[in-house]
Amino acid sequence: MTDTKAAQLLHLRGQSLAKGDPIAPPITLASMYHLPGTPGGVAAYGRSDQPTWEATEHLLSHLEDAPALLFPSGMAAISAALFATLKAGDRLLVPSDGYYNVRKLADQFLGPLGVKVVERPTTGFAEGGFEGFAVVFIETPSNPGLDLVDLAATCAAVRGAGGLTVVDNTTMTPLGQRPLDLGADMVVASDTKAPGGHSDNLTGHVATRDAALAERVRSWRTVAGGIPGPFEAWLLHRSLETLHLRFAAMCTSAETLAPRLAAHPAVQLARYPGLPGDPSHNLARAQMATNGFLIGLTLKDEASAERFIETCPFLRPATSFGGVHSSAERRARWGDAVAPGFVRLSIGTEPVEPLWDALKQALDGL
């Protein structure tokens, strides 16, 4: 995203204000609206119409350059995208090494409804082609392994085979990667991560430039009732206005820290797209505006990983990422197919040198 677009985002609401209006959007708490006569053309009911959502969706749409719909979590956004595009008899392709809840959703709910679910690893995602798939779900960089899929080539191949692509862009946000510009039909994301950024709010969104798909997702949200609360929408609106500052600081720090971490003797393997020797490096340079703020570290064993996280004063042990506080998690504890000593490290907004000192001291103690 250009600096101009970031500046525009801060003034989107201001361009339509009348004299005396609040610069910050108000939180509208309403389940019912004044609705005399025949409905139509005005807000009718809180499950379908919410001014605070709309203010936040305005910012998300600006970031995505596409209509965006807000949801109460990233998984709610993913569920809407999949249930709005799949039917019994369809085939769905998902990454076998991506966020595990996507596979659980597919296996436990879509499969029993008659959707055939196929899994492939991110590094071999295109092997076997895409013929016969109604929807191809892509996560790049993968979570937690940080492998990449060639978005332009994959989206073109899926479209050529008659399918739709849904891309999870949670790890990069629209500031770091733009799947819709690379041919994706739909983007989903957990705004709980960097867009929210303060570890206090669950939200997500779906964005698409296909009007029929957007209407289908909107209908799913209204009918199924997977709607965000107005306060959560307001919190995200507030956070989006500082996203460009926080995201830049996090990614810049990660660029500084990754080679230092990779060189530490306690680290057996470091994964970060910005490292010249990383398997994802060349593709990252082609399709990502930045290398992100996530770093994968493989330490000797489970005990070493846990000790590293526990003894570093500038790491919060938590199962999420993208906050202003640097955090870390041993992902094998959730069953991810990673080494027992693999740590997903999320770099926050701390000044980089004090953060490095704390990380190094914890590694030195292993």
Rank of each mutant, 00 (worst) to 15 (best):
L243S: 02
L202D: 14
S326G: 07
F293Y: 15
A263R: 10
A81L: 06
R218L: 07
F231A: 15
L35S: 15
G128K: 09
A212H: 15
A212G: 05
L236F: 04
P195K: 14
V118S: 10
T242L: 06
A134I: 05
L92F: 11
S96Y: 00
Y33N: 08
S73T: 09
P317E: 14
G176T: 01
Y100F: 11
L69V: 14
A126R: 13
H62Q: 09
V187F: 04
I295H: 06
F133Y: 15
L151V: 14
V117W: 00
A318H: 06
A339T: 07
G197K: 12
H237T: 02
L92H: 00
V166E: 12
E57C: 08
K19W: 04
D147Q: 01
A339H: 06
Q108E: 13
E310C: 13
M288L: 03
G225M: 11
L113N: 09
R91K: 12
L236K: 14
Q287Y: 01
D185I: 14
F71R: 11
R159M: 12
F83E: 08
E241Y: 09
V352I: 06
M1L: 13
L17N: 02
R209F: 13
Y100W: 01
E215G: 15
H281P: 10
F109I: 08
A289S: 04
D210V: 05
G145R: 12
G341V: 01
L93Y: 05
P354H: 03
H11E: 12
T203I: 03
P259D: 10
T319Q: 10
G40E: 01
Q8H: 02
L182I: 09
R178L: 08
Q177E: 04
S219P: 02
T256D: 01
S304W: 01
N143Y: 15
W220L: 13
S327F: 10
I78A: 09
Q15I: 05
A362R: 07
L86F: 01
H244D: 07
